[in-house]
Design a protein around this nucleic acid. Structure first.
Lengths: 198, 198
DNA sequence: GTCTATAAAAGGATAGAC
DNA sequence: GTCTATCCTTTTATAGAC
């Protein structure tokens, strides 16, 4: 219960930032949830923003073990891995009555002028997500037209997911997310069909 | 300078919520920017959240005159109207060094548990935007396959725009937005080509 | 490394004269 | 409808003993 104090703080902050956002989470909230006293938090972190950077580092470092591996367990086909990842976001939405938000996306739009370290960590998180998706579509490169921009395609997946989460949350209706993903699936089908025709 | 006091408050709040977000904008900020005193603001509004609903109502009521008409001036083709609307968002991003955020999208992700009136007004704003885009693609219905889901297509436009804005802001790089729109254009081209082939 | 107490400031909101 | 002054709470952060 001593050296993991820092980790308890980061974990509590991660949950609270996800549940309530950064601005609406007070230091007192973090202390209460992590069962840590003020003095200890400020021993590890100069201030609240440094807790945020630690949280963003945790997301970045955990994207494989915490997000991709759970989503991809047992799935072989690279394209289906992409949609299995999206299905994970759908599940999170359903389980939270469409209250869930992608933690990185929410922070990205909440923080209007983030200090450089914060912004760069958010960008690093998005970049890692896109790189993982890009690797999958690239692994199925033979199904796509020869001139396919795989990075842009992977970014499209991220954009549609983030947009779909935003709409589902705002309307409190998973159908918005489902329509978003259906449109993406249709786009993928059209691309692969185009290749088969060629 | 008396009956427009309320309007000055709403306008100042609109700008500040857009620049800094809702949580980071204080009542004192709004008073200072609108040159209004505390007593006057609380004469018109019970509290800060009521200022937010007034701002969201202003966005909803102004979507035609403030957003669509400026975007569509001189453009006839319905599909090009859709992309002209997206070009307006691009311009806003470029002019603000990729600091711009869609005001509704930012609020939608910042406010994690918005009270019903706030959430419904955000939804009404998105719905009006989507309806406007849907009307355009429907006006070009003959170019799309017969089974096209025009609402879902219009929602895709919104989702890609919101995602593209999020990425461009986070990376401070308009190329992210441009790739997002290019993917959307490719999707439209594929749909209309499919129809021509049929 | 952790504890309690508290400083110091900012925030939303109200009172009451005019 | 507007003005000034101010209350009350929350919030970030620090001090100093242990």
């Amino acid at each position: 219960m001593n050296k993991d104090t820092r980790q308890r703080i980061v974990e509590a902050a991660r949950e609270l930032f996800w549940l309530k956002g950064y601005g609406s989470t007070s230091i007192a909230d973090i202390l209460s949830r992590s069962q840590v006293n003020s003095g200890s938090l400020y021993y590890f972190f100069p201030g609240k923003q440094d807790v945020l950077t630690a949280v963003l580092e945790a997301y970045r470092d955990g994207i494989g073990a915490m997000l991709l591996e759970p989503a991809w367990g047992g799935i072989e086909d690279p394209v289906e891995k992409v949609f299995a990842l999206l299905a994970l976001y759908r599940r999170a939405l359903v389980e939270t009555d469409c209250t869930y938000g992608c933690p990185i996306g929410s922070l990205a739009l909440e923080l209007h002028e983030p200090d450089p370290p914060v912004r760069e960590l958010m960008a690093a998180n998005f970049a890692a997500w896109v790189a993982a998706v890009e690797a999958q579509v690239r692994a199925a490169a033979d199904r796509f037209p020869a001139n396919t921009d795989f990075r842009a395609l992977a970014e499209l997946v991220l954009n549609v997911m983030e947009g779909g989460v935003m709409q589902a949350r705002t309307f409190r209706d998973i159908a918005h997310f489902d329509r978003a993903i259906a449109q993406l699936r249709a786009h993928f089908d059209a691309l692969t069909e185009k290749q088969r025709a060629a």
